[in-house]
Design a protein around this nucleic acid. Structure first.
Length: 578
RNA sequence: GGGCCCCUAGCUCAAUUGGCAGAGCAGGAGACUUUUAAUCUCUUGGUUGUGGGUUCGAGUCCCACGGGGCCCA
């Protein structure tokens, strides 16, 4: 790690982060692969087997940020995304018609969409993510593995893999010699069996007996389309592959040179694509980086079989979710990028993924932390406005805020604290115009509702869907007649004074002095006189009374704000004794 | 059996190829005719899980241990 002093100096002038380093690695990889004039390829991959959740999003964004960094250095680069939609449909998730079990074993692109809105299962889950990525400013070249495999694009690589299957097996077997896990009890054993049956390792299962065991290629049955096939014979000269299907009992032959009816097993498929696509950088979940897992094995295979080099790699950790217990059951699943974008501005969601190193796990909180997150973001934004303070944090802000092609992502023209927007949204009936007027009155002048977007909409959604009921302010729907009938003499006087002097058109300043002034008036003082201790005590009681009558609680949002949110008529109806 | 991440203020967490341990909230003091779920100012708070090692210098790197979590087989 020795460095020249001049480089140390440049490090000090320009902050760096994990993105800088990953981009350095990718560029170095491209140079060492002897292709100086080639476009650098940063690859991501995902299987559209279900909702693409916030953990999967890390795959896309990690690559995106690295590609952006390379692009901004003026080096040709592409973000290539593979949809693993030729993978088998593994199991029917809860909430889907159990009859979909019929499709288990078929490619995700060949399973119909249970909701009927897209052309296939795969498309159903791709579409919402594609929309979210557009909002996030992520542009990528998308490739469908179904299209690639079925077009024969990998024909030569498949033939090579099959021809070299003994070498492949030699590599794979080295990683398979570990002791089988030991289950401590029956329950654990059951869980273990389930895990194994469900894991990607399933691809390793025997595809036939003897020489054909662990065959690197798996045909989809020509008759029923499932991968429930067992290879019965393979002729190296003709490349005819014979198989039987255990589900439909079909006996067939597919020719690997001329017909394109199957795919390589995952651990061979991945390195094959590194070679074909010339991948210089590709991240993966930390699980892919464990010894014996796909990256480790693939690294050897790409070299031995395809004469390529494994891309530079970063393993990313999992993304947790918090603060949405209420939602998980009703939605029947984990939150997606689209869910997060309902409450977070696109740059903030990007920021969450760029500010921490990939190997560090983090949690996206849909609960009260959202307010803090916005505050932190706004404060970082103020810091970023000062060029003298450009450090790694500001760099993260820059990466989050803009992309080379999309430019600056949408942020409100007038930045109002999220806390203010959401608490106002809480007490109004959710009318954006009304919120906008109140926000102006609270010292955030702006020309139109649009000036507050996209933040206002997200604050409204958050308040409505994510703030627990006990933390919300519920304005009474009708007057509390019992309480109004039981007013003390003082209380009656206060209310009378207030209602008498409250104008139909409320504005913040006069309303504030009126609310604080009522107890003074009741004691024969002027409305602008300084308060005495007695008056202060009265104010406390008066405020509590107002909260009880308006929102059925002892405390609440500041009264002048609350009054303005409700409007004079509503306040009057809730405070007028019968 | 193996790998990875985490342990830092009362709480939630920062500290980005080793360079003065920092925020927010909570707590305390104060300001504004204003005491509320507003705003602002100041402020208390630390043996960085434990024990070793490397280094001019360690929250950061290495080894061991304890605790929590994730993953692979």
């Amino acid at each position: 790690m020795a460095r020249g002093s001049d480089q140390v100096r440049s490090d000090q002038e320009s902050p760096h982060d994990w993105v800088t380093r990953a981009a350095d690695d990718a560029i170095r990889h491209a140079e060492q692969s002897g292709a100086g004039d080639r476009v650098i390829t940063c690859a991501s991959g995902a299987s559209p087997s279900g909702p693409v959740h916030l953990g999967n999003l890390r795959e896309f964004l990690t690559v995106h940020f690295v590609a952006e960094e390379i692009r901004r250095r003026g080096i040709p680069v592409r973000h290539l995304h593979s949809w693993d939609d030729y993978d088998r449909f593994r199991k029917v998730p809860a909430g889907v018609d159990p009859s979909w079990a019929e499709h288990i074993g078929r490619p995700l692109s060949a399973v119909p969409d249970p909701w009927g809105c897209h052309s296939s299962w795969a498309e159903h889950f791709k579409a919402p993510l594609q929309a979210a990525l557009r909002e996030l400013g992520v542009e990528m070249e998308e490739v469908s593995q179904t299209v690639e495999y079925q077009s024969g694009a990998y024909r030569d690589q498949i033939l090579t893999a099959v021809q070299r299957r003994a070498d492949i097996e030699r590599v794979m077997s080295r990683y398979r010699t570990k002791a089988a896990p030991v289950a401590a009890n029956d329950e654990e054993a059951e869980q273990l069996a389930e895990t194994l049956a469900d894991s990607v390792a399933n691809d390793d299962r025997d595809a036939g007996d003897g020489d054909l065991a662990r065959f690197p290629f798996k045909p989809y049955c020509r008759n029923c389309g499932r991968d429930t096939t067992t290879i019965t014979a393979y002729d190296d000269d003709s490349t005819d592959l014979a198989y039987t299907c255990s589900v439909c009992d079909f006996h067939g032959v597919t020719n690997l040179s001329t017909q394109h009816e199957g795919k390589l097993v995952w651990k061979v498929d991945w390195p094959m694509r590194w070679a074909v696509e010339g991948v210089d950088f590709e991240p993966g979940g930390v699980d892919h980086a464990s010894p014996g897992s796909s990256y480790t094995v693939g690294k050897e295979l790409v070299q031995d079989i395809y004469g390529g080099r494994a891309p530079s790699f970063v393993g990313y950790s999992f993304v947790g979710v918090a603060g949405m217990a209420k939602m998980s059951s009703s939605r029947g699943g984990v939150p997606t990028a689209a869910d997060a974008l309902k409450i977070l501005e696109a740059p903030i969601l990007r920021w969450l993924y760029v500010r921490r190193q990939p190997k560090q796990a983090f949690t996206i909180d849909f609960g009260p932390e959202v307010v803090r997150l916005y505050d932190e973001w706004d404060s970082l934004g103020r810091k970023a406005a000062d060029p003298a303070r450009r450090d790694a944090q500001v760099l993260a802000h820059e990466r989050a805020s803009a992309t080379a092609r999309a430019g600056t992502l949408p942020v409100p023209r007038v930045v109002v604290p999220f806390r203010v927007l959401s608490s106002i949204a809480d007490v109004t009936a959710g009318s954006a115009d009304q919120i906008s007027r109140l926000v102006s009155n609270l010292g955030h002048p702006h020309d139109s509702v649009d000036d507050l977007e996209p933040r206002l909409g997200k604050a409204m959604t958050w308040t409505a869907e994510f703030v627990p009921p006990e933390d919300r302010t519920t304005v009474r729907s009708s007057a509390d007649t019992d309480r109004l009938a039981a007013l003390s003499e003082d209380e009656e006087l206060w209310l009378a004074q207030l209602l008498d002097r409250m104008p139909d058109e409320l504005s913040l300043e006069p309303l504030t002095s009126l609310i604080y002034g009522v107890p003074k008036l009741a004691r024969g003082m002027g409305i602008d006189d300084p308060p005495t201790d007695q008056v202060k005590a009265d104010q406390k009681d008066f405020f509590r009374l107002l909260y009880q009558l308006l929102v059925g609680a002892d405390r609440g949002p500041r009264l002048p704000t609350l009054f303005m949110a409700l409007g004079a008529d509503r306040v009057r109806s809730l405070l007028t004794p019968p």
